[in-house]
Structures are given as structure tokens and as C-alpha cells.
């Protein structure tokens, strides 16, 4: 997952030594000038609406960008334009060092979650016309910034893997008796929404508790576990084991039902509802002491 997502990043920002060398403060300034020129040009050319975006810039490896700042870009507006389109235009036309992850551009790969106008959103799924300008585009909060809009996703992936997100069996079945393991329609309906997660980390970034408590599994991982724990085909022992992971002190109990995750989820997964259901499951299980 992580390698797959890291790929576009290198594509976006080719580590061309010549280019890096050019990023001295003076060159940067000149570049800024170019940018303005181009902007004027484009404005004159299009003679129409432009979109004002303010993009977060930071790069620990470039002296002029070590101090975080916002760069302004004026991008020609087109009907149906998304936030991702606008930053791509800015990168392609104004500043090729502008760095962000993206891949499928259709809300499936989950690489381009940004903090847009104070809310976690998928760049490719957010219409410019729905936003107030200037549009402030920042990297996801609560994750360390690697460069510009690119954040370190390692912690998020660690939490996802911590819930052992796979369907498994206690014993390997006899090969001669292998049978299709079918899921009932009703059960599929139950877990349907939880399967839609695209690992974009918007929820984790929006969560107040995950921000303060690094060990908290977070909404995405718990939702992932929900998908398996609620699957009828999961064996009793495995489900028990899964619930034990979830009912750790830093598991489901840390959720304070602020609904932040549910509100930002680009795939509309009812995350809070799933976490609450798992809390009740865990309590029920623990109360069955007879």
C-alpha cells in the first residue's frame, strides 16, 4: 500500500539535482516573479474567471522553504474543476516543485486527501465551485509534513495493520474439503459501508483524540476491524481475538463520539456508528460471565 502510494510522489517531484540546485533563495524569488508573469499572462489569455488558491509550502531540504508559508496561485477556472485540478495546474504551469500525492483522480486510490478550507477533503472529489475563495490548501493535520502537501502516512498504516485486517482461519482447512465461503446478502449489506474505506487518512487527521493519543487505533482501523468482526464467516475465536484488540484501553473506548471522522469521510462511511456498535459488542461480550 505504502509503496504504491509513494510512487506518484516521486513522479510529482523528480529529484533532479539540477532542479534542486536552482532552489536557492534568489532563484526562488525569480521563480516567484515568473509565476506572477505567467499568472498575468494566463489571466489575459483566458480573460475569464480565475481561482485564487493559497497552497501550503514547506520543504526541510530547501533553505528557502524551511520556513512554512503559503503561496498564492491564480488558476483559470473551468466548469467541473476540482481542488486537485487546480493544484495540478499550478504545478504544471507555475511551479514544478509544488508537491502532492495523487493517482487515480476519481476518489478511489485515496492519495490526495488535503486540508481544504479547514476540512479534510479528497482533492479530486471537491468541486472548486463549492468552496469559498481564496481556497486554503494544507497538508493533513496531525501528520508530519514531508514536503508541501505530502504527509508521512507510516503511523496511519501501522494503526491499520494493528487490527490484523484480513479474513483468516484458525486452522488451514484440508485441501480436499475446500469449499466456497459464502456470505449472506443481509450480512453483506451490514458490512457494505465499512468496505468502502480507501485509506486516505482523512478521518484519523480530523480526530481530536487521535491527535492527543498516539496509541489510539483511530476510526479507519476500527472500521476495518468492524468489517471483519461483523462478517458472519469469521470464526468465533478469531472474532474474540479481534474484539480483544479493539477493546484495549487505546481501542474503541477512546472514541468520544465527536463525529468529526464521520463528517469528513469522503466515502460516507458511518464511522462513529461502527465504533459505537463495537463498543456495545465488547460490553455485551464482557457481561456474559455466566
Amino acid at each position: 500500500m505504502s509503496t504504491q502510494q509513494a510512487e506518484p510522489e516521486t513522479q510529482d517531484a523528480p529529484d533532479d539535482p539540477a532542479m534542486k540546485g536552482a532552489e536557492s533563495p534568489a532563484a526562488e524569488k525569480q521563480k516567484g516573479g515568473d509565476m506572477v508573469d505567467e499568472r498575468d499572462e494566463s489571466q489575459a489569455e483566458f480573460d475569464g474567471e480565475t481561482v485564487h488558491i493559497k497552497v501550503f509550502r514547506y520543504d526541510p531540504e530547501v533553505e528557502a522553504k524551511q520556513e512554512p508559508r503559503f503561496d498564492d496561485f491564480h488558476v483559470p477556472f473551468e466548469k467541473g474543476m476540482t481542488v486537485l485540478d487546480s493544484v495540478m495546474y499550478a504545478r504544471d504551469e507555475f511551479d514544478s516543485s509544488l508537491t502532492f500525492r495523487h493517482s487515480c483522480r476519481q476518489a478511489v486510490c485515496g492519495s490526495d486527501a488535503f486540508f481544504v478550507n479547514g476540512k479534510q477533503r479528497l482533492g479530486c472529489k471537491t468541486q472548486i465551485s463549492d468552496l469559498e475563495q481564496p481556497i486554503r490548501i494544507e497538508p493533513l493535520p496531525h501528520q508530519e509534513v514531508v514536503k508541501d502537501l505530502v504527509v508521512d502516512m507510516d503511523h496511519f498504516y501501522d494503526q491499520m495493520h494493528a487490527v490484523e485486517p484480513y479474513f483468516k482461519s484458525e486452522d488451514t482447512p484440508d485441501a480436499s474439503e475446500l469449499e466456497e465461503q459464502r456470505q449472506s446478502r443481509e450480512n453483506r449489506e451490514k458490512v457494505k459501508m465499512s468496505t468502502r474505506c480507501i485509506w486516505c487518512a482523512s478521518c484519523m487527521s480530523s480526530c481530536n483524540i487521535a491527535a492527543g493519543d498516539n496509541e489510539y487505533l483511530g476510526p479507519a482501523a476500527i472500521n476495518k476491524a468492524y468489517k471483519f468482526a461483523m462478517d458472519d464467516r469469521e470464526e468465533e475465536d478469531i472474532k474474540e481475538h479481534r474484539l480483544r484488540i479493539l477493546e484495549q484501553e487505546h481501542g474503541v473506548w477512546r472514541c468520544q463520539t465527536q463525529f468529526s471522522c464521520t463528517e469528513v469521510c469522503p466515502k460516507d462511511i458511518p464511522l462513529t456508528e461502527h465504533i459505537q456498535e463495537l463498543k456495545r459488542e465488547a460490553v455485551k461480550k464482557n457481561l456474559k460471565f455466566w
Binding site: 526541510p60 479547514g118 508530519e144 509534513v145 491527535a211
Partner: peptide, 27 residues
Amino acid sequence: MSQSYNRGLVEDFGRWKEFSAGMWAWI
């Protein structure tokens, strides 16, 4: 999530206008 520098946290009160209902309820 240690930050290499301070870019402000979402729950900073400077950003209170962006807080959602559920967050206010919690506070």
C-alpha cells in the same frame, strides 16, 4: 505525531470557527 515545526493544530482555539457541532458538544 510529533511535528518538526508548529503549523498549528486543528483544535487550536484560533480555528474555533471551523469546529463542528460534535466537537463543540465534546468541549
